[in-house]
Simulated scan of single mutants.
Amino acid sequence: MTTLQQAMERFLSVKNASPRTLASYRTGLHAFFDTLRLGRTLPDGSRVSLDPVTAEAAKLDEDWVATFIANLQDFSPATQNLYLAAVKGFYRFLLAERLASPHIPRIEQWIAERARKVPRRRPQFPREEIEQLIAYAESLPTLPVDSAGASLKSESSRRAAQQRARLRNMRDRALILLLADTGLRVSEACSLTLEDVNFFEGHLHVLGKGDKDDLVRVSQRALNALRDYLHERQAVGLSSPVHRGRPLSAGRLTPLFVRHDRAAGKGSPTPLDPSTAWDIIRERATEVLGGEAAHRIHPHSFRHYFVTIVLLATNNIEKARRLARHRSITTTQLYAEVDPELDRDYHEIFNTSRRTKV
């Protein structure tokens, strides 16, 4: 006999998804199991409940989904959809493994009819402030670092602190330019290794959402910033040299973006994580724009910026979708209000034409 708890663990162990998605699915299934424990009222007025730890998976029918949807009404539409995706996937797994016999079309119909829809809004981002931050990032390597470690007593400690400050400036410039010119998700940027960069062909190998292999094109200014950063790291013995377009890593994968602080230590490079990258963006935004801007700009703002710039330059929504690696064009269409040709037509109709008539 396979219990519901055991079935859930098996489902999550074979699910092809990122650790973050798996954690979210686990949370959603735990919420579903809470509904099973609370129980539901049957048409004859009696109550039924299931303990996932002891209940056989075969006892789970699709009627529990309707009860779960009702219990989710206080959650946001986005959370509802995430949890219901986890539950629907779990039911499909039970059917495929012949652990239960749910009616999947009925589940899908209930979700379509009763679950709250996530409102699709055009992404908002402060474009002018992002461009100011990008300009500031390009100047980071020229900023003085003499004040770094000024309170330290030994000359060697002060030099080490200045070296770390210079590396952080080079790294942060490369990170910001890469996010702005590629539309990478911050998690994708943080997971890059030296082997993922091809300087000669000007692209990155990226493991995107759903573990999908993607080829991402990179601008020359971002490549130059990456090359400068890696050369600086090589100079202090923290990176492998760049040779014929690809960095050499002596047979092991080395993170592209790493920490440069005292806590990181002197051993193997410690890769940036998305949380640290978020802090970097916030700190640099504060330096150039003030504290208020730090709450308006975050790493994903650069992805919105990237898609908008592509649409403004090409007025081609399919090209924008492919460069942003959106699975569905409906996601890219959220940015389609940015239409330079339509702006010109509107100006012609309501401004130029009216002045001519007057």
Score class of each variant (00 low, 15 high):
residue 5 Q to P: 00
residue 5 Q to I: 01
residue 11 F to H: 11
residue 23 A to K: 15
residue 24 S to C: 11
residue 30 H to L: 12
residue 31 A to I: 01
residue 32 F to L: 11
residue 39 G to N: 10
residue 47 R to V: 07
residue 49 S to I: 03
residue 55 A to T: 13
residue 59 K to V: 09
residue 60 L to D: 10
residue 63 D to E: 08
residue 69 I to M: 11
residue 78 A to K: 13
residue 82 L to T: 15
residue 82 L to R: 12
residue 92 R to V: 07
residue 102 P to A: 08
residue 102 P to E: 08
residue 104 I to C: 08
residue 113 E to I: 06
residue 113 E to D: 15
residue 116 R to T: 12
residue 121 R to Q: 13
residue 140 L to M: 09
residue 140 L to Y: 02
residue 142 T to C: 05
residue 147 S to Q: 11
residue 148 A to S: 14
residue 150 A to V: 07
residue 154 S to C: 01
residue 159 R to L: 14
residue 164 R to T: 01
residue 165 A to L: 10
residue 165 A to T: 05
residue 169 N to G: 05
residue 170 M to A: 14
residue 173 R to M: 03
residue 176 I to P: 01
residue 187 S to D: 11
residue 195 E to I: 01
residue 196 D to N: 15
residue 197 V to Y: 06
residue 198 N to G: 09
residue 201 E to A: 14
residue 203 H to T: 02
residue 204 L to H: 06
residue 205 H to D: 10
residue 216 V to L: 04
residue 221 R to K: 13
residue 223 L to I: 02
residue 223 L to T: 02
residue 234 Q to M: 12
residue 238 L to Y: 01
residue 239 S to F: 00
residue 243 H to P: 00
residue 251 G to F: 06
residue 254 T to A: 06
residue 257 F to Y: 01
residue 257 F to I: 00
residue 263 A to Q: 15
residue 263 A to E: 15
residue 265 G to E: 07
residue 274 P to Q: 07
residue 282 R to C: 04
residue 285 A to H: 00
residue 299 P to D: 12
residue 321 R to A: 07
residue 324 A to T: 10
residue 326 H to S: 05
residue 333 Q to V: 00
residue 336 A to H: 06
residue 340 P to H: 04
residue 342 L to S: 13
residue 344 R to A: 15
residue 352 T to R: 15
residue 356 T to H: 13
